[in-house]
Each structure stands twice: as C-alpha cells, then as structure tokens.
Design a protein around this nucleic acid. Structure first.
Length: 555
RNA sequence: GGGCCGGUAGCUCAGUCAGGCAGAGCGUCUGGCUUUUAACCAGACGGUCAUGGGUUCAAUUCCCAUCCGGCCCGCCA
C-alpha cells in the first residue's frame, strides 16, 4: 500500500533495536522505556504465547518470564500491567510428541498412551483432540494447564487466554470479517513475505464439520453473511500430508481460524497488546509480516517488540523429540525459583546454555547479586546498578538478613540427613551468622535438599557415595595402618568431630605421615576417593561402630 | 545462495550502545589461620576480547571479509 514507507517503518520496528539503542544497563529497563515512550493506555498489556503442543520446557517459559520481567519494571514505575498469555490452542496438531506428561509432571512415553488414537487427530486444532490422559477437556487444555502451572511454580501471575475461546466467543469475529472483507490488501501484503500467496489465497482455515481438520480449501467467502465455504482437502503438516475427507460445507467465522501470519496481529488488536517478546525464529518471518499487516491491513500499531535468543540445555538444542528438555518443575528441584527467575533476567540477546552440571555457578552468581544488592560486598557502580534493578525482579520481596549457603557447600551438607547437624556444620563453617533469624536459617537450609538432588542427578563429585557395604581395595604401609588403628581407638572411645579432626593431625605427626596422605587414606576407606568432606566432623556423623570397623579395615 | 543474532580467562559471565591501561566470581597455584583437607583470609597465575584486514593519535568497541554456533528466507507455528 505505501511501499516507499515500508522500509522506514520496518526500521522503527526492528525488534533488535529495542534493547540495542538504549543506554540502560538492564534490558528490562530499556524495554520499559520503549513501552512508556508510546504512552500506552492503562493497563499496559504484555503478551506471550505458545502452542500447547506438548510438555512445556524452559524454552517455552521465555514467553512468560521475559514478559514478566518487563511487567515488574513497569509496575515498579507505577503502571498497571496485565500480563496475558495466549495459548495458541486453535493451531493444528502437526506431529506427535515423543513424550507427554500428566498434570503432576510425570513424563510418559507416547507408547504408554493410545498413540494410534492421537495420531488420527493430526491436522485438527489442539482443543478438538481428546486429552490422552482423560483428565482435561482436550489435548490443548491439558498442556495449557501445564503451561499455567509452570507460571504458578515461578509465582508469575498471568491471564491465560485460550485462542480457541477467542474464536468461539466471537472476540475474533469482527477482525476476521474485516480481513476477509479486505482480502485483496491482505493478500498483497502477505505476498511480500510468502511466495505461495497467490490470487486464490484466502486468509482463513475452516474447521471441517465432518472430520474436524483445519482445511485451507476455501471455495467461497460471504463476508456479509459471515460464512466461509470449503472443501476439506489434503493438508501438509511438516513432512506429512494428511488426507482431507473431501467434505464440502459452510462454516461461520467462529468455526475456523486465521492463518498465523494474520492471527498474531489480530491478537495484538483484540487484546490491545503493548509489548510482546518472541523467539528469534519469529524475528525475520512472522514479525516483519505481522508489522506490515498490522499497519497496512488492520490499521493498528504493532506492539513494542523484543527478540530473545534460544536456550540450549546442557550444550544441545532443546528438543522435545530428542528428549532434551527440562521442565520448570524439574528445575525447581535443583534451585530456588528466584535463582531461576534471575536466569531470565540475563541479556536475552545472548544464546544461553542452561547447564545442569554448572548450576552451582548460576546460583553463585545469584548469591553475589543478592549480596551486592544489600551492599554486603564491594562492587563497582555498574554491577551495583544492575543488582538494584534486577534483584527485586528475581525476588518478590527483598528481605534483609537473608542467608545463603554456597550451593556446593549445601551439597556437602547433604551428606547427613540430620537437619540439626546440617545447621551445626553450616554455622561452624561460618555460613550462618550467629544472629541470623530463624526464618533465614530455615530458608538457607532448604537449599541443601536441592543441592543433594543436583549432586545425585549429575552424579558429580558432591554425590558422596559412602562405600558402606564393602571395604574399598586399599593397600596402606605399616605406619599408615598403625595410625588408622590408633584413630579407630580414639573414635571408639567417643569423640566429637572437632576432636577427631585434631587427632588426625596429631597422629599424622606421631607416625611421621604426610597429613595430606593420611587424610586421603581416610577418604579412600570411606569413598574410594582422595578427597572428601572435612573428615573429623564427617566421621562423627556416621555410626561409631561402622567408623571404627572401617578404620581398622575389618569391614 | 541471501539476510539476521551471538562468540570476552580453564568454567560461568559483566563490559561493547558513546573508541581511551582487559574486568568479576568460581577453579588452579602459593602463602596464612600456634590443624592446608571442598570453610575462612591474603596474594599470584590465567586473555591474539573467534580470525584477518581497514579507519583512527588510540579499536574488544566503528567498518569490511572470513570462521564457528544458531535463526529466518518453503509450509506451519
């Protein structure tokens, strides 16, 4: 329509510049600035959305948490913000996922449900497919529920909006009619982005009244009557072609959907969206065409945009089909939700690996952020500014006096199941201040279980495998053996951890052993390793009979 | 093939917008704490800022090319 202007307007809507062109230290502030400069009406609407195609993983959470970050910045500035999450559940099921999950996050293989029954639903809207678990009204509702629960787990309030409902309740009706009334202009605009758009293209997919599939075989449109006629023809989804049933019929504008390229800008219009983050896969396809359609077909202003890079998981692409996924529920077994939220506060423009093996580093980073925020450690001005802006978003109610036990040390504490002993060791090692309030101690110790889960799941160096059943193969010289016997006698007489620790040093001296070698002998006996937790206190946590027998190499 | 995003210490990451001595944490090493043992304290080591050119008094930063990782340019979302 205004071809000469299109380049210029696209530059204004380059989704990368929202953050790039700002001098803000924190991207959330940059985006908030861009939104405010539009002087939006309240409430400011922030949207995200995904198709409920299967088990939601941390990549999908970008659509919720990135928006939440900006929402919180705006709320802090006094704005009323509504965060909407559209479940794009009117989309076609294109492919069966390899794994599904029930509402309690128990993952099951496709083979464990009726895959054949599911497979007969390819090409139908997610909400028109029975829930394979039988607990929700549809396949779509099932996985939308899991998406909503993911948000709940992170304490992020969102309004979940079903796209299916928007069609069914008529919300989309006017705009659908408008697009069909203006098919010519719709085609011309979209044709710049999709080669397949020709004179016969109709921006509507009808839901076949006979087989339920969404078909592109539109034969006639009567905008005034509000009806679309179709022939149910074959549909290509991914690699496969699904046979249409050939049924000919006529449906209302509520019985079908707009193609995605139109549906997205239509959502902006009917939901009055002011900001939407999206993955880089949209940055050069859907987004520019969406902007063009919004401006030149629908005559609405596109929202402020932001591109986020995709996460990888343990170095590889997140992939439902390859099974390389991790859910919010699983992540929260390993770390606190505020740490996970912090992960999403990091620069969205960088590809980021969520690496379970290195989770301790992510947690350390968060702990440092917290200490910088509370001025407990020195930091330069940039880091302080970042902490001031980011920390209150990651943490709901910043509370002074909070205590954090270093993550790897929390893993060390997991060597004992005794909560009092955990606390005692943490205090002794200086990780819990004497004047720490009870709530802070309790919160701090809660990390121990998460770190234990991490150590076990990754089977790393912190996963103490006490060789309780069987004496590891050891071969000590006479002096070491004698010193171990003496230590056994000392333990047998009853001694606390610090006393045992001290005795180890004394015995090393008495028997002219290298202290390090003597400690290693102890770790060798217990773990078949050369290193381990502080030995004296650790021996004190175990039952005396076992320790004495083991030190004497009897059992 | 064309376009776009990213690449900074062994690891995890700031810094690049607006050119001005290359940064933090962790790890490693050394020393200290009248007991080095995954705690604590001090210090050190550690960099071709992916590579090669260009502009500049000065380039991690700006420009060009290349490499690597990824996305888009079919359909679909």
């Amino acid at each position: 329509m205004i071809a000469t202007d299109s380049h210029e307007t696209m530059t204004d809507h380059d989704p990368y510049t929202t953050i790039e062109e700002s001098d803000r230290a924190f991207w959330g502030e940059a985006v908030a600035d861009a939104i405010e400069s539009r002087e939006p009406t309240e409430p400011i609407v922030i949207k995200g959305g995904v198709s409920p195609s299967g088990v939601p993983h941390i990549g999908h959470l970008n659509e919720i948490v990135r928006g939440y970050v900006v929402a919180e910045v705006l709320r802090d500035r006094g704005h009323n913000v509504r965060q909407v999450f559209t479940s794009d559940d009117k989309d076609r099921l294109r492919k069966l996922p390899r794994r599904l999950a029930d509402l309690d996050w128990n993952v099951v293989e496709l083979g464990e449900v009726d895959a054949g029954a599911l497979g007969r639903n390819l090409g139908k809207p997610y909400t028109a497919i029975p829930d394979p678990f039988g607990c929700c009204d549809s396949y779509g509702e099932h996985f939308t529920t899991l998406l909503a629960r993911s948000a709940d787990l992170l304490d992020i309030p969102i309004d979940v909006v079903s796209n299916t409902d928007l069609y069914a309740d008529g919300t989309f009706e006017d705009i659908t009619k408008y697009i069909l009334d203006n098919q010519q202009s719709a085609r011309e605009v979209l044709a710049d982005y999709q080669n397949s758009v020709d004179a016969a293209y109709v921006p509507f997919q009808a839901e076949c009244q006979s087989c339920g599939m969404l078909t592109d075989g539109i034969t006639d449109v009567d905008p005034d009557a509000g009806t679309v006629s179709y022939t149910c023809q074959d549909v290509t989804v991914g690699e496969e072609t699904i046979d249409g049933c050939g049924h000919e019929g006529t449906v209302s504008l509520r019985e079908g959907k707009l193609p995605w390229r139109f549906e997205w800008p239509a959502q902006w219009s009917v939901l009055d969206v002011d900001f939407e983050p999206f993955g880089k896969d949209h940055a050069e396809g859907s987004w520019p065409s969406g902007v063009d359609i919004a401006q030149n077909v629908l005559d609405v202003q596109p929202p402020v945009a932001m591109v986020y890079e995709w996460f990888t998981l343990n170095g590889d692409a997140l992939s439902s089909s390859a099974g390389n996924v991790v859910t919010a529920e699983e992540v929260l077994d390993l770390l606190e939700s505020e740490v996970f939220r912090y992960f999403f506060c990091k620069d969205p423009r960088k590809q980021r690996d969520f690496n379970v093996a290195h989770i301790d580093q992510l947690v350390d980073e968060f702990d440092r952020l917290e200490r910088v925020y509370f001025d407990e450690i020195e930091a330069d001005a940039d880091e302080r500014e970042r902490a001031e802006q980011v920390y209150p978003i990651a943490v709901d109610e910043p509370r002074e006096g909070r205590v954090r036990i270093p993550y790897t040390f929390a893993a060390v504490l997991a060597m004992t199941d005794d909560p009092e002993l955990r606390e005692e060791i943490a205090r002794r090692e200086g990780h819990i201040p004497d004047d720490a309030p009870a709530w802070a101690v309790e919160d701090a110790l809660a990390r121990v279980e998460k770190a234990r889960t991490w150590a076990r799941r990754t089977d790393n160096a912190f996963n103490y495998d006490l060789k309780r059943e069987e004496l590891p193969a050891v071969d000590f010289d006479a002096d070491t053996a004698a010193a171990l016997d003496a230590l056994a006698d000392f333990v047998a007489d009853g001694a606390d951890g610090e006393a045992i620790q001290g005795r180890i040093y004394e015995l090393a001296d008495e028997y002219d052993l290298d202290v390090g070698d003597f400690f290693s002998a102890g770790y060798r006996l217990l773990f078949d390793l050369d290193e381990g937790p502080k030995l004296g206190p650790f021996l004190a946590t175990l039952d005396r009979e076992f320790v004495v027998g083991r030190l004497r190499r009897d059992r």
